[in-house]
Write a protein that binds this DNA or RNA. Structure first.
Lengths: 119, 119
DNA sequence: CTGTATCCAGTAGGATACTG
DNA sequence: CAGTATCCTACTGGATACAG
């Protein structure tokens, strides 16, 4: 750990940056829904869960701003906007999967392990 | 992420459970500090960053309750309490590292700046 | 349909003082 | 030293109404 250019501080802030991006309550559900394919705004509103329009918009804007989600507007009326994962968004599903695998292991184990992460 | 046997619901809830555990502002810094070795309460208070005692205690209690951190009390006076990572805690550093790697390579300029009051 | 504007409640977390 | 108790502020996100 000595002599490294990557400081602990960087390590912590970078990790925290990802977590800050993913921790808003609906970020992961939205990402996961989009991992199922392109969705329209109203479809997300319905499929993601009990999310408000304001929050859905905020979540999408945040993900879009960080380059994880692509927003496509169809100029025709009535308005039609489609959201999809960018390559960057797809690349995030890997470490996200690693996190899920870890959680799954602790949750179900092989039957003998105590449950640790009951939500 | 497609073609998996697990249900979407499981995937989302399990992932969200981990994120909920790690997203509190100081969870990762505390874990990371402990990854550097056993620390006493006062050492954490100083090393982790600008964290209040209340929040440090809350964070430690949460991590301890989920089995990631071990708490050891030395009955001698003055009180001396040592915290360390459990094997489960150590196992989490792997997916956490994966997340960091992703942030480091994909999320350029990921440094999070503390938000200030908007006038 | 796809948002934005406004109001509001619940909560995370800081400051401080006090306890064993 | 290692917390707990209390108070307080800021931010998140829901509900509703309005707009393009």
């Amino acid at each position: 750990m000595t002599g490294e250019d990557v400081t602990d501080y960087e390590m912590i802030t970078a990790t925290h940056a990802v977590l800050a991006l993913l921790s808003p309550r609906w970020a992961v559900p939205v990402l996961y829904t989009l991992a199922g394919g392109t969705r329209r705004y109203s479809e997300l509103l319905y499929e993601v869960g009990e999310i408000s329009k304001k929050t859905l918009t905020q979540t999408l804007r945040s993900l879009e701003h960080h380059g994880l989600v692509d927003r496509r507007v169809d100029p025709d009326l009535p308005a039609r906007v489609e959201y999809s994962l960018t390559p960057l968004g797809w690349s995030l599903t890997e470490p996200l999967m690693a996190l899920y695998e870890w959680a799954a292991t602790q949750l179900s184990g092989a039957g003998s392990r105590p449950r640790r992460l009951a939500a």
